[in-house]
Structures are given as structure tokens and as C-alpha cells.
Design a protein around this nucleic acid. Structure first.
Lengths: 319, 319
DNA sequence: TTGTAAGCGTTATCAG
DNA sequence: CTGATAACGCTTACAA
């Protein structure tokens, strides 16, 4: 692997002059610059990341740490982040599991966007203390270098449920996600708030885990059970899809026998029958906004608050 | 940020002794080791990645470079890779776009798994020349440090189509993916081979792009067109799902009026109606195998050939 | 305009 | 068992 030393030697200049030329510094004679650049070219020179980083303290990397690689919701956020970063001279590094913490602690990134509730607040605080900014997307947590932008789960679901109740649905059920999920819990609060405000005391509750399979399994037992709701709010689209499938297999009509709705507006909801009414976030724009913010913090030291991502109801056929 | 120097000072030893202790080297007195470890603890010491890497030439990172963050197929491969690496002391770093090439060239990874046809063979060869192993999953390419493991698209689709033809379907169509896609092209070859062997000269061809939307759009025009096939093989499940949806909306019955099948066996195919017959790869195991291989190459210099991922037909209701 | 040299935080060689 | 010290590849005062 060619080093800057090799380039300097080939171009017959000192290492520092080579460095200046390679970094587009002004004070170097056009001719020497040309020679240096050519030498670098013929040697296929690429600067060594660690060596540069050791001096400059800059990695050029932004980490995005997610809790798993599955789930259609991530992809849009990631793509938004990726596009923005690519256009602004940063690399995106996404990781999951223990690797994330390592990347943070060892300073392989200049900043991080967190979408992984397994990374503890403590680790984040430790890292942020060293001056590197962090944006959390999955919890409320702010401090000197920690910023947060979370979905308004509560408000969105509450508003939606208010409309649903006005439509006359009475016997409502909530199909949950994992009970330690930030999103699930806030959606449930919104759900209950709306019922409370409408003076409805009771509701049914099914414990799911955000997967199609869990929705399906629960749907099967609900369909044949006696205490059937006329509306069930599913904590995400995937479980709603499974739930709907089970109901249909058992001969129930949606929305006539039981109406349903979900959260996320994943692509698939437009291709099932009946098309699913749901609440959607503009994930792509959210990703861009978040990336924009972290780059500005790093490059210019700005400390603006982040916006909440935009969300709205997509009315379709399922209720 | 605490450095090893700080740790040494606090423990009242030299830097080198601190280094030995921190790296579990044998020749250090239990008592001093204890003091050093405690000092590291209280200072929240974490070794600096770049400094260590500069000396050792080891990053502990494996890069996985994908062409985009969308698509349900990736997630399982990634999860398989991630789990294996996590259990074997490596970090997974996934990236996409220009960032990938940067990570490669700047040696921020000890090896790379490529799932991105936008990275040219040349870049891969340049990198591999420096001794770092590469595994390509999306093309045939081998050289000294480049290994490849690709799906047997051709064989799988051909075998499948042979069965289909034996079932009596006559007028077959192929709904393609992007025409520069490795997977699409090999699947198409398999499709044509089977027809050829069965003595069938003609087939219909629809140009898609692997998305649900494209399948849907094409389905709409095929459904009302006159020259309707009785079987259409879709290059992937997502386009098959869109295609099926369109047919149903136009009042056609699957598989009676037209039978369909796909490729990938994504989770959703089990939750649409009718359930989709498809060809599936064990992506998770594939990921593990690939990760296992690259770790062995790096750690032990082994140069075994990779296995093809396992694939099989999942017969369901759509044909 | 170019060169010399210090230093970033580690590891590893060599003495002690 | 422990401690100086060189070296990894690069950037950046400072000197020439």
C-alpha cells in the first residue's frame, strides 16, 4: 500500500509538500503540485484513514445505530440520511448490536444517530461528553450534545382515534407491540386518551409484538372468540396485516364486521385487501432532516432544536 | 478522553506496562495489573481506534456494502452476518453508495462482503491486491483475495419451471426485474432454458423493476389485454404481489385464470391471497456462512471455496 | 515555495 | 516483571 512517503519520493519532494498538494493547500507551485498528483495517481495512493484521523480528530463518518436490520420502516430513514450525507461529504456507517457501542466508544464516527433502544442512556452520555453530537430517534433524552427527534405517537394516534370514535365505533381494541417499545407505549397512551376524552371506559387489549405472525395468531383467536370488538387499532401495519388476514380467513368482513387501522404506512398496506387505513410518517424527509442537523452541529457548532417528523392519516378501506 | 498515558500515570506505571496489562499479556504482576485495570475503569478508558489500527493494521471491522437500504431480502443476510461476527469478535459495518468505496480504500475494514453491483470489479481488485479479502455475492468474480458465492438462480428457476410445464401450463410469461440485474438475468435464463427443453418456442415478456408498484401496473394492462398467459413467472416476490393484486382487482382468479410464482420467499407472501408459491433462499444461513468464511480467511488464511446458498421451492396456492 | 520535525495514541522491541 | 523508545502514516507549525 502506497503511503504519502512513497508519493513524496516519486515526486522528489518532501512529505509535507506532498501533503499540502494532496490536500489542495494554496501555497505550492503548480508544477510541483502536478508532479505530486501524478505520482499519487500512478501509485494508487489513498490516505490512510487512521493516520489522518489520529492527527485531525475527524473521521468523516456518521454512525447510524439500529436495533436490527429487519423492518421496512428503517429503510426510508436510512436512505434519507444516506443521500444527505453523501451530498455533504460524510460517510454513513450503519451498525447494530454490540458493534454500535464499539464504534461510538472507539471514536470511529464523528457523530451518531441512534435508533436502538438497547444502547443505554449512559453510554450515550459518556460519548457525548467527549464533544461528539448524538441524535436519538427512539427516546426522550437531551443534554449538552444529545438531541432528540421523536414521532408524536401520542398525538397522532389520539387524533386518529377521536375521528374513529366520532364515526360511531364503540367497542375498541388495541393490538400492542412489544411492551417495552417506546413507540408502542406512546401509541397506547394516545389510544387511551382518546377513549377517555370520549367518555369510554373500557377497551380490549391484545398483546402482540409488531410482527405479521403475531397479528395473524391473535386475529385467529379474536375472530372465533365471543367478545369481538368492532374496531381494533394495531400498533403497527405489519401486525395489522396479519390480523386482517386471519379475520378474512375466518369469514369476517373488514370493515363491516370489524374495522382496523395501523401505523407506519408501509408500502404493502396499499396492496392488501382491503387497503389499510394507517398513520404514516415521512421517513425519508425525517432522515434528511436529522442528517442535516447533525452535519450542521459538527461543521458549524449550531445547536438548533430538531423538528418532529411529519405524520398524517392515510384513509383507505379498512375503516 | 482518557488515553493510555492517563491510565499509566494514575496507576503509577509506564505506558508500556499499562499496554501489556490492558491487552491481557502474561508478563505483568497481578497487583500492578489490578491497579492498571482499576485506573482504566475509573477513567472510562477506551483505546483509540485509529492509534491502535495504525500500529496493528487490524480494524476488527468487516464491511458489508449494499446497493440500497430497502428490500426485505437484505435484512436476513445482514442479520446472519451480524450474529456470526458479533460472536467472533468482529464488528459489522454496513454502508451504501460512495461511502462504501471510501471505507474500502481507506482500509477502515479488514475485509468486505459485497452486495452492490455499483462497486466496480476494478475497485474490488485494487483493494484485494493489498491482501484484504473480499466476498462478492452479486457477481461471478474470483481472484487471489476475491471469493464469490451466488444464488443458483438459473438452476432453481429452471427446475421450478420444468415442474410447472409438466403441470400443463402452456402460455408462459416472464415478468422481469431491472435488465441490468444479475439475479434477474440469470433467472430469465433458467426460465428460457426450461421452456426450450420442453420444446416450447414462445413466451411473453413483461419488463418490470422488482417493485410491487411495477408488478401492479403491469398486471393492470395484462389483465385487460387479449393475449393473456396462463402462467407468469415473476422475477421476485414483490413484483408478484403487485401483479396478483392487479389481476384480482380486474376480476381474474389465481391460479385458475392465471397462475403465478415469484422468487425470494419474503415473509409477506404467506399473508396475501392466494398465498404465493415461490423459490426461497435461506438468507440467514447464507449470511452466517459468508461471515464464517471471511473470518476464517482473515484469522487463519484459509482459502476454501464458498458454498452456494441453499434454495428450494415453497409450494403454496398461486400455482 | 519547500523542508524539518513534533506529535496524535497505540504497540512492540529491547534493555534493565 | 517493568520501562524507554521507535515506529505506524499523516498533518501542521515553524524554519529556511
Amino acid at each position: 500500500m502506497a503511503t504519502i512517503k512513497d508519493v513524496a519520493k516519486l515526486a522528489k519532494v518532501s512529505i509535507s509538500t506532498a501533503s499540502y498538494a494532496l490536500n489542495n493547500q494554496p501555497n505550492v507551485h503548480p508544477d510541483t503540485r502536478k508532479r505530486i498528483l501524478e505520482a499519487a495517481e500512478t501509485l494508487h495512493y489513498t490516505p490512510h484513514f487512521s493516520a489522518r484521523n489520529l492527527k485531525t480528530k475527524k473521521t468523516g463518518n456518521i454512525g447510524v445505530f439500529i436495533y436490527g436490520f429487519s423492518g421496512p420502516i428503517f429503510s426510508d430513514v436510512l436512505e434519507g440520511i444516506r443521500q444527505y450525507l453523501q451530498d455533504n461529504g460524510y460517510n454513513i456507517i450503519v451498525s447494530s448490536g454490540r458493534a454500535s457501542t464499539t464504534l461510538l466508544l472507539e471514536r470511529q464516527v464523528d457523530g451518531a444517530i441512534i435508533f436502538d433502544s438497547n444502547i443505554t442512556d449512559d453510554v450515550l452520555r459518556t460519548y457525548a461528553k467527549n464533544g461528539s453530537p448524538i441524535i436519538v430517534l427512539d427516546r426522550y433524552l437531551t443534554s449538552d450534545n444529545i438531541f432528540s427527534s421523536v414521532i408524536d405517537n401520542e398525538g397522532l394516534v389520539k387524533d386518529f382515534m377521536s375521528v374513529i370514535l366520532k364515526k360511531g365505533y364503540q367497542k375498541c381494541a388495541y393490538l400492542s407491540g412489544p411492551e417495552d417499545s417506546f413507540n408502542n407505549n406512546h401509541r397506547y397512551v394516545g389510544f387511551k386518551d382518546a377513549l377517555h376524552e370520549a367518555g369510554i371506559k373500557d377497551h380490549l387489549y391484545y398483546k402482540g409484538d409488531f410482527t405479521v405472525q403475531s397479528g395473524y395468531d391473535i386475529g385467529k383467536v379474536v375472530a372465533i372468540g365471543e367478545n369481538r370488538p368492532d374496531f381494533v387499532y394495531c400498533a403497527n401495519d405489519e401486525s395489522a396485516i396479519g390480523f386482517a388476514r386471519a379475520l378474512k380467513e375466518e369469514g369476517l368482513r373488514i370493515p363491516d364486521d370489524v374495522a382496523i387501522a395501523g401505523f407506519d404506512n408501509i408500502q404493502m398496506v396499499d396492496f392488501i385487501h382491503p387497503k389499510l387505513t394507517t398513520i404514516g410518517i415521512d421517513h425519508f424527509m425525517w432522515g434528511k432532516h436529522v442528517a442535516d442537523t447533525i452535519v450542521n452541529i459538527i461543521d458549524h457548532g449550531t445547536k438548533d432544536r430538531l423538528n418532529q417528523p411529519e405524520g398524517r392519516i392515510y384513509w383507505r378501506e379498512s375503516c
